[in-house]
Each structure stands twice: as structure tokens, then as C-alpha cells.
């Protein structure tokens, strides 16, 4: 189990850096069609910010910001967003993920509808990647055994 680090430099630097990393990750997700990046890259950076918080502030505090339950819910929500937009296109009579069909719902020209549709897809991908990144790191670092389970299992570590 990862406990809070006793090195004051790392803790203070991480504390100041984490909000900026998160804003940067959201910038990478949102500007995927203007600059390099996109949903996957932004999601990885966003997940890395949570991992940095988990490493520097310990498991107990990190669980208040992002727990396993939240990560699981967020990952499924991202996939729901992705497939929901795809199915919406299918319902509008186009192919799956053919965003031109969204123009009648959003009341914009098809080109702009394509831009907005791909933004929604990228947000979904980013949320899922962030949650899965955090969940994988969480599982590896705890060995799959949470502190509250340790008493039940009688595991000494």
C-alpha cells in the first residue's frame, strides 16, 4: 500500500503542478482537431495526474478524489458516450459514427456537426482512458487487495 511520502519537496511540487497538468490534459482533449493530441493522449495525461497524486499523497487521500468505483463508473460512461453518439448517427439514417447525420439534431451545417461529433467522441475516449489508466495503476500498486480487505483476509504487509 502506498503511503504519503515524507519528502516535502515532492509533495509541494506535486501539489502545485497537478491542477496545471489537469488543465493541460483537458486542453489536449478539447483541441484535438487543431493541434496534436486528442482523446487518448489527453486521457493518458489526465490519468497520469491522478497517478501522481496517488504516489505523492498516498492511497488514503487519493481515494477521496478518485476511487475504484468512480473509475469503473467513469470508464463505462465514456464508452456509453462514444457508442451513444455512434448509435445516434445510426438512428438518423446514416452509418455508425457518420457525424453528418447529427446536423438535423444540432441544427448546424454538416461540416460543423462533424466537428462537434468528433469532439464528443474524443471526450468519451479521454474519460475512458483516464479511468482505465488509473484503475490499472491502482490494481497493480495494491496487488488487488485494498486496505479494508486486508483485515478480512488476514494479510500482513
Amino acid at each position: 500500500m502506498i503511503s504519503i511520502t515524507d519528502d516535502i519537496i515532492i509533495r509541494a511540487v506535486a501539489r502545485i503542478l497537478i491542477p496545471f497538468i489537469q488543465v493541460y490534459a483537458l486542453y489536449v482533449i478539447m483541441h484535438g482537431h487543431h493541434s496534436p493530441g486528442g482523446g487518448f493522449q489527453g486521457g493518458v495525461i489526465l490519468g497520469a495526474s491522478f497517478i501522481l497524486y496517488l504516489i505523492t499523497h498516498g492511497l488514503e487521500e487519493a481515494k477521496e478524489k478518485m476511487s475504484e468505483l468512480k473509475a469503473g463508473l467513469l470508464s463505462t460512461f465514456g464508452i456509453l458516450l462514444y457508442s451513444g453518439i455512434g448509435l445516434l448517427c445510426l438512428i438518423m439514417g446514416r452509418n455508425y459514427l457518420d457525424y453528418g447525420g447529427l446536423s438535423t439534431i444540432l441544427k448546424v451545417v454538416p461540416a460543423q456537426a462533424r466537428s462537434l461529433g468528433i469532439l464528443g467522441i474524443e471526450i468519451g475516449v479521454g474519460i475512458t482512458v483516464m479511468a482505465i489508466m488509473f484503475s490499472v495503476f491502482f490494481d497493480i500498486s495494491t496487488g488487488g487487495i485494498l486496505p479494508e480487505d486486508e483485515e478480512d483476509l488476514g494479510v500482513n504487509r
Binding site: 497538468i21 493541460y24 493541434s35 496534436p36 497520469a48 497517478i51 504516489i55
Partner: peptide
Amino acid sequence: VEMFVDISMVYALLNFIGTITAAKYLEM
């Protein structure tokens, strides 16, 4: 430049986090 600044920033952030993670792993 405005495009490569973004990439290099990601590189700096992930480098920092990776070094700290490796140090934490060795410490544990």
C-alpha cells in the same frame, strides 16, 4: 513551433511523473 511546444510539454510532464514513479517503486 506552436505544435511542437505541446508535444514537448507532454514529454516533460510524463518524464517527471515517470522518474518519481520509478523512485517510489524502488523505495517501496
